[in-house]
Design a binder for these strands. Sequence first.
DNA 1: ACATATACATTGTATAACTATGTATTTTAT
DNA 2: ATAAAATACATAGTTATACAATGTATATGT
Lengths: 111, 111
Amino acid sequence: MNIGFLHKWKSQVKKGTLAFIALNVLKDNEYYGYELIEQVKKHTKIEIAEGTLYPLLNRLKKENLVTSKWVEQESGIPRKYYTLTPTGEETLLQMRTFWFDLEKSIKKISK
Amino acid sequence: MNIGFLHKWKSQVKKGTLAFIALNVLKDNEYYGYELIEQVKKHTKIEIAEGTLYPLLNRLKKENLVTSKWVEQESGIPRKYYTLTPTGEETLLQMRTFWFDLEKSIKKISK
DNA sequence: ACATATACATTGTATAACTATGTATTTTAT
DNA sequence: ATAAAATACATAGTTATACAATGTATATGT
């Protein structure tokens, strides 16, 4: 059944998908990184590695799709909260269009 | 709106997706490379570059998911036809499961 | 005390899409 | 007749990103 191929493939599918997922999650609420991972794990079957998410959030910030602010906790480690920028919201809309077209295309060819 | 980001993102989404698309197309018929590109272009919005497809088909062959055979033409350049192997068919089923779970997850978080 | 969970981050590796380029044949347009 | 475009394969180099491994530091449960 070629488990090795399947494993590599799933990893490749996540490329790009994870940015889309993160922006979707941040559309309605602001979250800090660790919380975002937990949210996605709770509501979907998707597991995002920490070593994936933190660089991803930094990329999104550099691209001006999200902003972040540190929030001190009364107890515990400070948290970095992320919010969508207006650019981020517009871009997310474009991404959704592309994604749903892709879904439709794949549905068509997988009959 | 960050066109640069969007362009890169679409390219990343294609990683993995294209292998899935190619296997889906080959599920019901055998095709040669150039024809496969035309088929996908005709039935979907997806454009596969030649420099992407030929290496992809070679990978799939090396992974034992497809086989190929040369077919001479009465006129014109010989064509290399690709067919799914039994391993390819099984793997495709696993891929479909993952893909449709992913779809569902994304639908959930993009509300 | 010790393990686990929380919360951030970086480095190195592997993989795959795409551009550019190349070869060769056939068809279409001028 | 000849040039351009389409058909049909292929490879090398560039770029981007997921993930494992590793590191720092605090808090909580046993």
